[in-house]
Each structure stands twice: as structure tokens, then as C-alpha cells.
Nucleic acid binder design. Structure first.
Ligand SMILES: [Mn+2]
Ligand SMILES: [Mn+2]
Ligand SMILES: [Mn+2]
Ligand SMILES: [Mn+2]
Lengths: 229, 229
DNA sequence: TGAATAATTTTGACTATCCAAAATTAAATC
DNA sequence: GATTTAATTTTGGATAGTCAAAATTATTCA
């Protein structure tokens, strides 16, 4: 009865897919799901129908799929394992933040509850992973902070990077090389629609200009008093 | 082309099964293999024929199966991962030596070469796992020490426990509770065929009497100068 | 050496997961 | 509103791994 790694991957992909959507209409389209998982569309359809049978998702033909309460809890626990493992690999094993995602993608399905509890304890019950993604609690509850991106935050004010929402290694290495990792204090100097670019002032007034697509993947919060690492 | 965890488990079971046998006639019978893996006999037959197709084993119908050179190397690498993981879980994560085997049984298939290298480095290139089992090198080479068991070692001489060849948690807990773990210095006082028992003098002259079956699972070496932790 | 027993292999069938291509439905466009 | 396009589902088929039970081969033992 325990879910296979395939099932866990589907649930997680739906969970993450739902994130992009509004609170009411949170149906993930089949096409998006299939491409997120790297399977053919028909495969996703078949699989989702099976998941619906076992009560983990609700499926609306031609519209998409959403998680049931049970499915959402399971997905959150997979994500918890994933993110705790990522942080563990960076902090304890000394791996780079750009190489832990793929490793966690495998291990998240094969680590026992007992070991996860050990890791959580050893890391001091952390709230976020190396990319700033929140770590769900053991009961499946997730703290959902809403942050601005570099596209929506105020201009000319110091802000702190809180989260980088792209797991691709080359992007993460770029972020690291330019001191834009979570915790860094930066400022958006200007945005230009025409050139599709955003100009930043980074650590020690270092200037960088990045594209808007990239800018939308960096989340920030106001750099004043109230914050939690 | 990379082997599935099922294939890895078969190769490892054959490798370990061969251990019991003499150097010439090292064919593992199908029945033993099937029961080691917890599958039906017919399943093992089918699977072994497939392994033979891909050149990982040599299969003699009605006689049994042995590893090819390629299969032996693969098996040794799986065992390397298994044992490094066990030691890591005990030394770094603080798990008990009686609970790491099952965890390692899963993780051995899903940990990357990179992470294994990190673990090996972090542990200081260890030679043996928490049970005293030798850890194969990255090239597949294994140091095969031959040790006496408590059934064959000299009577009335101090010896050092080097290895405990049973992974069952209750047995390991028994060993631990009576200070018979690898590294402990003990002495066999007497053996009695009739009562099927072996009397030991343990740490601080503590006396224990165990059965011969159990005694055969504890390996020891002479307690004098030359030894390697 | 012939029958009884034990080990092994074969057969037929099942589940989970996947793909390619055809068929269908929905959305967009004229 | 009819037609083209895009998304989705269906169909037919494949692979890996498994089991139960029947058939076969080997072994034991009288
Ligand atoms: Mn995964
Ligand atoms: Mn992450
Ligand atoms: Mn295993
Ligand atoms: Mn071991």
C-alpha cells in the first residue's frame, strides 16, 4: 500500500504544478504534468486515472488534475524529504547547492522516516532548504510565505534574497557566482520592458543586468527588521 | 544500461552466496538464491537466465549460478556502497548498528558515485563496516581476511572480535548487550558438543554461554600485536 | 535399479509503467 | 458557425518483475 516512487513523483509534480495557479482554479493540465515528468501525454492520463481510483487525486477529463487531501499530504511529505535531504547534503556533506537536487530526486523515495527524523534533528529543524524553498513539517503543513520577485519588488530599496525558484545547475551556479544566493542583500536599480532586462546592485555595489525571465526566479523580502534566516 | 536495483540485489545475493562455498565449486543453487531474495524459485530461474544473457553471470541449469568477472565487479561495488552507508549511518548519523542494515539495503541502489566518494572520504577510507565486514575498494577489490570463529579459535587464549556475520537486529542487540562487538577482547573457555554450547569470558571476566550456531557467527583474531582496527 | 522425494524449470497469467500513433474533444480562428 | 489547430484520450503493444501450479529433472533410498 505504500506509494511507489513513480506515484510519489506524480504527486509531487502535481503539487508543484498547482503552486503556479490561483486558489480556486487549481487544476494542473495533463500536458504540463506530462512534460514536468518527462513522460508521454497518454502515460500521464493513464497514471492519473489510476491515482484517481486510489483517491489521491481528483481528475477532470480534458481539464486537468488536482490533489485530494490525502494526495496533498503525501506530496508534502515527499517534498519534506526532498528538501531536508538537499539541506543535509549541502550542510553536512559539503556538496554544492547546484548538485544536490538530482541526488535528492532519487533519495527522497528511499530514505526511512527514522533517518529523516535524524536529519531534521541534526539540522536543527530547519525552515527552508538551500534554495529558500520552505520545508513542510512532519504533519504535512507548509508555511507559505508570499515574496516579491525581482520583477515586482520596489525599485531603489535594499531587499534580501529569500528564494531561488529554479533547480537547474547552470542557473544556480550563475546565482552563486554573482552573490545572489538566499541571504544576500541587493537592490533593483532599474527595469526595462523594451530590453527585457533588470539591473541590480549587488554586494559591494557590484552591478549586474539580467533578463526578466531570470529575474522572475529570484524572490526577495524587505531588508529591514523582521525576518527569519 | 545501468543495472536496476533488482539486478543489483540478485548479483549481491549471488556474491554473498558464493562466499560460503569452496573456491572451485562456487555455484550458488537456485533454491538458496530464491530464498535469500524472498522470491519464488521460478522467478529466480527466469531472472538468472536474463542475467546470463547480459553476461553478468554463468548459469548451469539444475546446478546453479556463479558471477562472471563483470558481475563480480558490479556486486562488489554494490557491497561497497552498502557497507560504506552502514558505517556512515552509525558514525555520522548516530544510528544503532542493529538498525542500519535495512536502511542500507535500500540506499545502496540510489546513492550517486559522487556522494559515495564523499562518504568514503568523510569516514577516512575505512576498511570495514560496523559489523566488521570488509569494504570493497572503488575498483572492486576486496581484502579477504580469513578469521577463526568462536567454534574454531584456540581455547583459553585472549582473542579480539573482528566480525559478526549475521545482520538480524535481535542477534546484533544481543551481541552489543554482552560486549561482543568488533574490537572487544574475549576468551573461549570451553566448548561442549553435547550441550551444543560455548562458554565465553568477556569484558571484565563476565561469563556468557551461547549456542554453537551463534558462536559460528562471531569471528575473532589473535589478540597480540599485529592488527588493523 | 526403481520408486519416492526434492529441487528446478516451464507455463500461463498478472501488475506497474511506459511509448507511438490513431481517435477524439476542445479551443482558436476566420 | 465552419474550419483549422492544439490538447487530450484511446488503443495496441512493449518491458521488467513477479507468482502459482504443472512439468521436468535430479537425488535419495530402499
Ligand atoms: Mn523523485
Ligand atoms: Mn530545493
Ligand atoms: Mn538492496
Ligand atoms: Mn554490515
Amino acid at each position: 500500500m505504500l506509494p511507489s516512487s513513480t506515484v510519489e513523483n506524480y504527486l509531487k509534480a502535481i503539487y508543484l504544478g498547482e503552486g503556479h495557479l490561483a486558489d480556486d482554479q487549481r487544476l494542473v493540465p495533463m500536458g504540463q504534468l506530462a512534460s514536468a515528468l518527462g513522460v508521454a501525454p497518454g502515460t500521464a492520463t493513464t497514471m492519473v486515472k489510476a491515482l484517481a481510483e486510489s483517491g489521491l487525486v481528483e481528475y477532470e477529463p480534458y481539464n486537468g488534475v488536482r490533489l485530494s487531501a490525502a494526495g496533498e499530504k503525501l506530496a508534502a511529505l515527499v517534498l519534506r524529504r526532498h528538501r531536508l535531504i538537499e539541506l543535509f547534503l549541502v550542510r553536512v556533506m559539503g556538496l554544492g547547492w547546484d548538485e544536490v537536487h538530482d541526488e535528492a530526486e532519487q533519495l527522497e523515495h528511499h530514505v526511512s522516516d527514522r533517518l529523516i527524523e535524524r536529519i531534521d534533528e541534526m539540522l536543527g529543524r530547519p525552515e527552508v532548504d538551500p534554495h529558500g524553498d520552505p520545508i513542510p513539517k512532519a504533519d504535512g503543513h507548509v508555511a507559505r510565505h508570499e515574496f516579491d520577485t525581482l520583477l515586482t519588488c520596489p525599485l531603489g530599496e535594499r531587499v534580501t534574497v529569500t528564494r531561488v525558484t529554479d533547480q537547474e545547475a547552470p542557473f544556480l551556479r550563475f546565482i552563486e557566482q554573482h552573490n545572489l544566493m538566499p541571504g544576500e542583500s541587493i537592490e533593483v536599480e532599474a527595469r526595462d520592458e523594451v530590453s527585457d532586462s533588470v539591473r541590480l546592485k549587488g554586494r559591494s555595489d557590484q552591478r549586474i543586468t539580467i533578463g526578466m525571465r531570470a529575474a522572475s526566479k529570484v524572490r526577495v523580502s524587505a531588508s529591514d527588521a523582521s525576518s527569519r534566516g
